[in-house]
Write a protein that binds this DNA or RNA. Structure first.
Length: 256
DNA sequence: AAAAAAGGCAACCGCCTATTC
DNA sequence: TGAATAGGCGGTTGCCTTTTT
């Protein structure tokens, strides 16, 4: 929808006290991205002065955090993430930012919206069994679709061989402090350095690496799920920790 | 096929805390 | 030490899309 159309709506997209409000345009996004490239995150109140953007600091920060950040994970919440949300919400309540820190690439806003739309109504619908059943059916359908997508993704990932993985570790170890240890552990575990039976083990590790914002193929939007089962991988905890630290540097959950 | 209802999500608001001066 | 400012968080709103009737 164009800005002009938006501006025609009731109070949405108006200019108030010199600040634009409402949906962001592609041009505004570009200006904000350029600003962050040049000045980094923070100093949000300087955005308008330094970039020409007619948005206040809060709006700019929110747009960056919730939408423009390069490390954001796109796509639907996976069943595994859903379980984490449920578990952590039961533990912490509506502390969305805390919950979101345990879901790499997800924002507090996203988690909050997801919980509100998927769980709050379910909790409230006890008096309406029909609605509850319908909601369950929809959820099941969506989960089946997501699982199918993940299987396809995993099949693609399994085509990666050990050599490629090691070369990617080589490329990135200058930037990611935990990867040298991961690489060393890989060599110890798999001295022959070949693909094959290790592939199941590589999958979660590689996922962790590929999900880093600076990873070369980040745009492939590879799923994180494997990382959450790292304790299953051959009992090598130090390697699991190394990979987790590399990928989950902002993660609050204490893996190690 | 059309209208109504529900779902989904981006964005705003107000409050609180941390930081700076 | 207190005021001003910036940043962060949770709650809420408003609009578009999808589903249901």
């Amino acid at each position: 929808m164009s800005w002009g159309v938006m501006a025609g709506n009731l109070g949405w997209g108006v200019i108030e006290e010199g600040w634009r409000k409402g949906p962001w345009t592609a041009e505004e996004d570009s200006l904000l991205i350029e600003y962050v490239k040049l000045h980094g995150e923070g100093r949000w109140n300087s955005v308008s002065r330094l970039s020409g953007l007619k948005r206040n600091g809060k709006s700019s920060r929110l747009r960056w955090v919730n939408y423009l950040r390069p490390d954001l994970k796109r796509g639907q919440i996976t069943p595994h993430e859903e379980n984490i949300i449920l578990e952590l919400h039961a533990k912490w309540g509506n502390r969305w930012s805390t919950i979101a820190r345990s879901l790499p690439g997800r924002t507090d806003n996203e988690v909050k919206n997801y919980w509100r739309t998927h769980f709050k109504k379910r909790a409230n619908s006890k008096s309406s069994p029909d609605a509850n059943e319908k909601a369950k059916a929809r959820m099941l359908k969506r989960q089946q679709f997501q699982q199918k997508q993940q299987q396809q993704q995993q099949q693609r990932m399994n085509r990666l061989d050990m050599k490629k993985f090691m070369s990617l570790l080589d490329e990135s170890e200058n930037r990611v402090p935990y990867l040298p240890q991961a690489k060393q552990d890989m060599v110890t575990l798999y001295p022959n350095n070949t693909a094959g039976e290790e592939q199941d083990f590589l999958y979660p590790l590689f996922n962790g690496y590929m999900s880093l914002p600076e990873a070369p193929n980040h745009e492939e939007n590879i799923l994180w799920d494997g990382l959450w089962n790292l304790d299953d991988i051959h009992g090598n905890w130090s390697l699991a920790c190394a990979a987790n630290k590399a990928g989950l540097h902002t993660l609050a959950t204490p893996f190690c």
